[in-house]
Design a protein around this nucleic acid. Structure first.
Lengths: 219, 219
DNA sequence: AATGTCAATATTGTTCAACAATACTTCCAT
DNA sequence: ATGGAAGTATTGTTGAACAATATTGACATT
């Protein structure tokens, strides 16, 4: 049978391809995306490409300037601050009311163990991915597809922010153990303390990123 | 000078027009939206219209079936339940950490007073609008544009759900006083209790809607 | 050298017409 | 009624066209 992906509307497939290029860093923040160039590159019509552009613009990954084209979004400090407000709301909220036997807890554990393994091998990119997976699993505790989708969007935007920096080690590695702590508290059913620790985590992480931003800003 | 709205891309303007038709009930859940009919109606090309359709599909207001077209979403009980999970997360979370002098508190007060006035005149549609405004203001307490936008989407989806019912009075009017209580607690700085009351509110409201759904389902 | 002006050029915004692929209808035979 | 086969309508996607706007480059002025 054909892959479920193959049957999606063209615009959706394009949007996904572009999103992958974005979060993998092939397209860098600020870069202009010419309609002609990309419709040629993907061998699709300009119309189809424009539909995809609009979807990603709505996600905040692209920015649209009238009569000038679309550009890869350039996250600012304000963006980071806003995203961390979202994270505190969603992640701490999910933990606070989590059931310790929820299926997502298993995913959290897998993510933590994967992160530890990758850290062992100094695979910082892998640590980063496992970290993202952990936090997505935390949000999944809330059992809401809308919250999970929304979180996925915000995480993609945040990833764009990470691309501006270049310190994959310092930004993820120190937090693996904190994730483990939060996981342990959740498994023990100590939801309130887990949420509290997550808030500490997010405050720390936010500060680290803002600091890195500051550094990269005054070059 | 020209209205800021006039300069938006055509697809965005179309999406807004369509959204207005949707939440005002001119288009009813389940209805199919023919590309030909609507591109004629709005006097735009099919391509532009399709861009708008995609935007609204991403918002959950429309549903897209391959090679069959787009339809107005039909909220189900699962939709309602998911939306109320979102509401509890966002609204209770916002209240819990709210500052009692936040500008949005003023908006909350205006909404409550407007709701009371409309209730006096038995303007139930007006009560509903004021109610929506109150809850949007609650989310605004969290000072995150992303959370506010997300909430706006979910609220629009929920509005679609209300359209399936036809009891504007029973679904909003009883809650005006509860809003007032929550407002009072917030103004007094009793954030924790405000959040608690909001949770009670949302549980009540959810149950009322699900009940109404049940009734309308077995016709 | 810096600045301003104006035409030439490239890009986006939008429409239109075409055609393939898919879904829906109609009608006929069983 | 039931199933199937043709015919019709709709969506999916493309390519070309043109207006509107933005960028570039040459030239003149200071």
């Amino acid at each position: 049978m054909t892959n479920t992906m193959e049957t999606l509307p063209l615009a959706d497939r394009l949007a996904r391809q572009l999103r992958d290029l974005l979060i993998s860093g092939d397209l860098i923040p600020g870069q202009r995306l010419s309609e002609a160039a990309f419709s040629e590159r993907f061998d699709v019509s300009r119309n189809s490409l424009r539909e995809a552009f609009r979807l990603l613009t709505k996600d905040g990954l692209l920015r649209h300037e009238a009569n000038r084209g679309v550009f890869v979004s350039v996250p600012t400090m304000a963006t980071i601050i806003d995203i961390y407000r979202v994270r505190r709301m969603l992640e701490c909220g999910a933990l606070r009311q989590a059931w310790h036997q929820h299926p997502a807890v298993r995913t959290m554990r897998e993510a933590v163990e994967s992160a530890k393994a990758k850290r062992e091998q100094a695979d910082w990119l892998g640590v980063g991915s496992a970290n993202m997976m952990f936090h997505a699993a935390v949000v999944a505790l809330s059992d809401s597809s809308r919250l999970s989708e929304f979180y996925a969007h915000v995480a993609a935007e945040l990833r764009l922010g990470f691309l501006l920096l270049d310190d994959p080690e310092g930004l993820h590695a120190p937090f693996v153990d904190l994730n483990d702590t939060i996981l342990g508290l959740t498994e023990k059913g100590n939801a309130h303390e887990a949420a509290h620790q997550m808030e500490a985590y997010l405050n720390l992480s936010e500060r680290a990123i803002l600091k890195a931003f500051e550094r990269s800003a005054d070059l």
